[in-house]
Every structure is written in structure tokens, then in C-alpha cells.
Design a protein around this nucleic acid. Sequence first.
DNA 1: CAGTATCCTTTATGATACTG
DNA 2: CAGTATCATAAAGGATACTG
Lengths: 119, 119
Amino acid sequence: MKIPNPYAATCPTRLVLDRVADKWTVLILGLLANGPMRFNQLRRQIEGLSQKMLSQTLKSLERDGLISRKAFPTVPVTVEYSITPLGQTLTSTLDALRTWAESHIGEVLDAQKRYDTVA
Amino acid sequence: MKIPNPYAATCPTRLVLDRVADKWTVLILGLLANGPMRFNQLRRQIEGLSQKMLSQTLKSLERDGLISRKAFPTVPVTVEYSITPLGQTLTSTLDALRTWAESHIGEVLDAQKRYDTVA
DNA sequence: CAGTATCCTTTATGATACTG
DNA sequence: CAGTATCATAAAGGATACTG
């Protein structure tokens, strides 16, 4: 049982980290944590998210086993995305990240302002 | 006091999220959490990290107030990077993320294999 | 509705060479 | 040692049009 070292390029942990460290992953997972949603519902919720990026991100999330896709044979077709148990385990961590961002954004912005005015 | 909505494109929280969700940020911050390090020390520790990316990432981390830079007037110059108190507050959250990746990498890899063989 | 396919632009990153 | 500057390339992303 060897512990993966994320500082090695080939480490699979780093691959996961890279996937999670994705612009849309955190936001999509955050929405699905509250309940299933359909494709265009998600699209409307997340500003600036293009159809292409949504489609792409959903596909990798599904591939990683973090969300699941269910299509209903209505006309036109309805597709519902929901979070998996594995995905659930991630959301609490991501929530913490979101929370950090929300509560420290002010300090970061201040630091940036200081940095920019000195330079 | 309004709560920022990260689902809005203009939300500064999303900017922070994007910055944190950076390939190298998590790894660099993780190393500096254990103590100060010099430029090339960091470079050697993180496989696949180019000089350019390191330099660039360190600069934004410093700008965001998450790390601080101190130069010693030796010949040749020595530069030490260390984590700030603000940066400290982030690392526990990022540790959780790293931990998640390490403990769930197996499940993710399995999910990927299943997905790929069906398709 | 929920996508896919294509083209095209922008951004990110790598390689290399150079400097205080 | 700790960078910066420049060039070249690859990858990411957007816009648009089309389909079951």
C-alpha cells in the first residue's frame, strides 16, 4: 500500500486534483448537491458557461463517477443529472473551499490592491 | 453586506475559486505550509513544473497575499518564499482536498475504467 | 431538450536564451 | 540563484450551425 506522492508528475492523485481544480467542476457539483438538474437548467444557472463546456464537464464528471446521467424517453428527451455517493463525499470539501473564498475574498482583494499600487 | 453568488460571472469569489483551482497553487502552498523554501528548491520538488510557471504562480500567490517573498542580499541572491497567515487559512482546506484525492483515487479510476469499457 | 460537429480565436504553457 | 524576455506551439474555449 504505497501512498501516492502528488508532487510526482505521474501520480494519479495529481490527475484527480487537476480535474477537481477545474473552473466549472466546483460550481456544477455544488448545484447538483442540492438535487438533480437537467442540462439546460444547469446552463442557465451558471453564468458564462457555454453549452460546449457544460457538455464536456458533465461528461468527465460522469466518467469520474462523480455524477450520473439519466435520460427519460420523453419527446423531446429529458436528461437528468444527479450527484453520486462518491460525488457527495467530494462536495463537503468543495463547500469548504467555496466558503473560504467567500469569507476571504476581501483580504485577497486588499492584498491585490496593495501589490498593484506598490508596483 | 451582500453574499457573493459564485454562479454570477462577475462575482469576485469565482475569481478566487479560479485562482485556487490552479494546477500548481495547491502543490506550492502545500509545500510552503511546511516551512519556507527557495525558488529552485520548489522547482526541484514539483515534477513537471517549469521555471516560467513557477515564477508566474509565485507572483500571483504573492499578489493574492497568500505567500510572501523575501530576498537576501547574498551573492548570488537568495530568495525565500513563505506562507502568510492568510495562506495558512487556506491550506487546511486544500489539505482536505488532497486527502480526498488520495483516498478516492481508486474509486475514480475504477469509474473511469467502467465508463471507458462500456463506451 | 440535449446535445454533437466544425471552425476559428484566444490563452496557456514550453523551450531557449539571457541577466543582475 | 532567481529570475525575465521572446518565440513557438499546443491546448482551451467560444460561436455557430446542425440533429435525434
